[in-house]
Lab assay of single mutants.
Amino acid sequence: PKDEAKKKVKEAIKRGDEETAKRIAKKYNLDWDDAKREADEER
């Protein structure tokens, strides 16, 4: 599900692992900028 994928993307971003985050986002066709902004807001 997309929500689960987005959570994984945000967790990867918070760990500083943007490569993984981008790969997950691409795989699930998520909006990378959107997920990154959300992760930054939660930090």
Score class of each variant (00 low, 15 high):
Pro1Asp: 15
Pro1Ser: 15
Pro1Ile: 14
Lys2Asn: 12
Asp3Pro: 05
Asp3Arg: 08
Asp3Asn: 11
Asp3Glu: 13
Glu4Ile: 12
Glu4Arg: 12
Ala5Phe: 09
Ala5Lys: 03
Lys6Ile: 14
Lys6Gln: 07
Lys6His: 07
Lys6Trp: 15
Lys6Asn: 04
Lys7Asn: 11
Lys7Gln: 12
Lys8Thr: 06
Lys8Phe: 11
Lys8Cys: 15
Lys8Gly: 03
Lys8Asn: 06
Lys10Gln: 11
Lys10Tyr: 14
Lys10Ser: 06
Ala12Tyr: 14
Ala12Met: 12
Ile13Gln: 01
Ile13Glu: 00
Ile13Val: 03
Lys14Phe: 13
Arg15Phe: 05
Arg15Gln: 08
Arg15Lys: 08
Gly16Glu: 02
Gly16Phe: 03
Gly16Asp: 03
Gly16Tyr: 03
Asp17Arg: 03
Asp17Ala: 03
Asp17Val: 01
Asp17Ser: 02
Glu18Gln: 07
Glu18Val: 14
Glu19His: 06
Glu19Ile: 10
Thr20Asp: 08
Thr20Pro: 01
Thr20Gly: 09
Thr20Leu: 15
Lys22Val: 04
Arg23Lys: 13
Arg23Phe: 09
Arg23Asn: 09
Ile24Ala: 01
Ile24Asn: 00
Ile24His: 01
Ile24Leu: 14
Ala25Pro: 00
Lys26Ala: 14
Lys26Phe: 11
Lys27Gly: 02
Lys27Glu: 15
Lys27Arg: 12
Asn29Lys: 08
Asn29Phe: 06
Asn29Gln: 09
Leu30Asp: 00
Asp31Asn: 12
Trp32Glu: 02
Trp32Thr: 01
Trp32Asn: 01
Trp32Met: 04
Trp32Pro: 02
Asp33His: 07
Asp33Asn: 10
Asp33Tyr: 09
Asp33Ala: 09
Asp33Met: 10
Asp33Gln: 09
Asp34Lys: 09
Asp34Gly: 06
Ala35His: 03
Ala35Val: 15
Ala35Asp: 02
Lys36Gly: 03
Lys36Asp: 03
Lys36Ala: 07
Arg37His: 06
Arg37Asn: 07
Arg37Met: 08
Glu38Ser: 06
Glu38Asp: 09
Glu38His: 04
Ala39Arg: 03
Ala39Leu: 10
Ala39Ile: 10
Ala39Pro: 03
Ala39Phe: 11
Asp40Gly: 08
Asp40Ser: 09
Asp40Pro: 04
Asp40Ala: 11
Asp40Trp: 13
Glu41Tyr: 11
Glu41Arg: 10
Glu42Tyr: 07
Glu42Asp: 10
Glu42Ser: 08
Arg43Thr: 12
Arg43Gly: 12
Arg43Gln: 14
